[in-house]
């Protein structure tokens, strides 16, 4: 464990807590893409299949359980909670995320570290995570204005993978064997997808204006 990875995990954890706070405090999920949340739930379930078979560390196990439970809780809230689901922007959240799922799985079957069920699902979760934010970014573009908590959520989510890139650079130089090309390349693509959001987020912060994404 290095400081970059710890910072990344904490940023990721905070982003999920910010989202849960927004939904719980405002009893609203307006501006949040259910499709992105469903993709994240799939990412965690597909990636943490080894949760009960391989014990790596207490920290690792606790964080996996937190990520799986929180992502499922958010999806449940947005689908089933009678108050929250009313504020879901169903007509704006129209990204065809099923295509993302099929494509990522297809790529994972071709490009993986080892052609086993677990490695294919692991690669699938890595690729899916890279593109999971797309429905959310499209929804933000469509809805124009971004409320603070949702903006912070996306910003933190982008920051977490950026920290992980520093972690991979660190591990590349420190450890003799670097076998994380799938994660590193996919993580770069993932962070690049946030680039335009980061740009507008920084502008809104600099001009102390409300975050407004060009339609």
């Amino acid at each position: 464990m290095n400081i970059f990875r710890l910072a990344g995990d904490m940023t990721h954890l905070i982003s999920v807590l910010v989202l849960l706070l927004k939904i719980y405090a405002t009893k609203s999920c307006s501006g949040i893409s259910l499709k992105t949340q469903e993709l994240y739930a799939m990412v965690f379930v597909a990636r943490y299949l080894d949760l009960f078979t391989d014990y790596i560390s207490f920290y690792n196990t606790v964080m996996k359980i937190v990520f799986i439970l929180s992502s499922l809780a958010i999806v449940w809230c947005m689908r089933m909670h009678r108050v929250v689901k009313r504020s879901y922007d169903k007509e704006l959240d129209t990204f065809r995320h099923n295509i993302l799922i099929v494509v990522c799985f297809g790529v994972a079957v071709i490009i993986n570290e080892k052609f086993t069920l677990r490695e294919v699902f692991w690669a699938f979760s890595i690729y899916l995570e890279a593109v999971a934010i797309l429905p959310q970014l499209v929804l933000l573009q469509r809805s124009g204005n971004v409320d603070n908590l949702t903006g912070q959520y996306v910003f933190l989510l982008g920051g977490y993978r950026a920290f992980y890139i520093l972690n991979w650079i660190y591990r590349y130089f420190v450890e003799q064997r670097f076998s994380r090309w799938i994660s590193a390349i996919s993580g770069l693509i993932q962070t690049a997808l946030y680039a335009d959001f980061f740009y507008y987020y920084f502008l809104s912060w600099k001009n102390n204006a409300k975050l407004h994404l060009p339609a």
Binding site: R5, D9, D54, N60, E113, W122, R177, S183
Partner: peptide, 10 residues
């Protein structure tokens, strides 16, 4: 081999 290394990252 790299595939056997435990995935210690989240």
């Amino acid at each position: 081999s790299s595939a056997d290394d435990i995935k210690d990252e989240l």
